[in-house]
Design a protein around this nucleic acid. Structure first.
Lengths: 167, 167
DNA sequence: AGAATCCCTATCGAACTAATAGGCATTGTA
DNA sequence: TACAATGCCTATTAGTTCGATAGGGATTCT
């Protein structure tokens, strides 16, 4: 899965709307200004988020955007899938399962791809917009999702190579 | 991280060379035929793998390609980084660490991105070409890397949504 | 000498990405 | 009721990436 510039903008805009949750409609212009995003491009993104029922809009003067659901009910996986497609590094989960079943020669390879997508999905399904809110004074970030009967998963000590592992 | 068609071809070609390990040089044409890959495109890929010292070539008649190191010393992470770039879903690990440090407003978001890349890295660093070899008769695949003093990590029961979780 | 094979650079069309443009529709307010 | 503010929507564009092909040069075996 690759997160595009557009995907990043979407997430940033939604973080902004999360901060302003319950404060009524926010103008595109204000979101763009506060998050330093290209206004016209953001307009397109918000339209897409609206069609996906993640945000809602008010038109005309005093119009603007706001979240349609509480921030702790909007998962990062949902947004990323919408804007940037499947979480799998190749194809999508369904396709990979098919290949694992049918392509005996490359089964093990596709299984690794599926493992990677599952690991990403686990993180992104369990992180909501609410989890991204950091208190202004707070130090190094660490988040947790609890509410609404969801399993809280803390990704503790996940690190690959040595202490110094680039990419 | 997104694995391109080219990346998949590279991995497939290397799996083929793993099967033929210690059997001398294999012609591009034979690899292409056996794995059903476009020959000319594969040529480019192998050239790149050669420059990265993953495979070595012999030129002239009786020429061809072979792995330059034993299959259990070639990690999927190395190949994917070479062909498709950083494992992170956005930017690279170093850049993400910088953003987490400096961009207070979006720190938590970038931390999630880094968590995702760490999860992917963990899997891909711990899987080698040797791990992808399945016995011809064997059923559902499961692999493990042991040799050369590496920590063997079995990604057990990693699954996101419900039983039926597409992408 | 000649055939086989890898080496290398160039090129191509299709698709995707990030962004901009501009007119239409709706709504609050003077 | 006008009009200004704002979102809605479609089109367009320049630049990049992707997947693939082409072809001549260099090397090595027989």
């Amino acid at each position: 899965m690759k997160i595009s510039q557009k995907g990043l903008y979407a997430l940033q805009a939604l973080m902004m709307l999360t901060r302003r949750y319950n404060q009524g409609a926010i103008r595109i212009r204000d979101i763009a200004y506060e998050e330093s995003l290209p206004e016209k491009f953001l307009e397109l993104i918000l339209l897409e988020l609206k069609n996906a029922r993640i945000v809602e809009s008010a038109r005309g003067a005093k119009g603007g955007y706001q979240l349609r659901r509480p921030p702790d009910e909007i998962r990062l996986s949902e947004i990323i899938r919408l804007v940037d497609g499947p979480l799998a590094p190749f194809g999508d989960a369904e396709q990979l399962r098919g290949l694992i079943t049918r392509d005996a020669d490359h089964r093990a390879l596709y299984q690794v791809f599926l493992d990677v997508r599952d690991a990403a999905a686990k993180i992104l399904e369990n992180t909501t917009l609410a989890d991204l809110m950091t208190k202004p004074g707070a130090g190094p970030a660490r988040r947790s999702s609890k509410k609404k009967g969801e399993a809280s998963v803390v990704p503790l000590m996940v690190h690959a190579g040595g202490k110094e592992g680039h990419d």
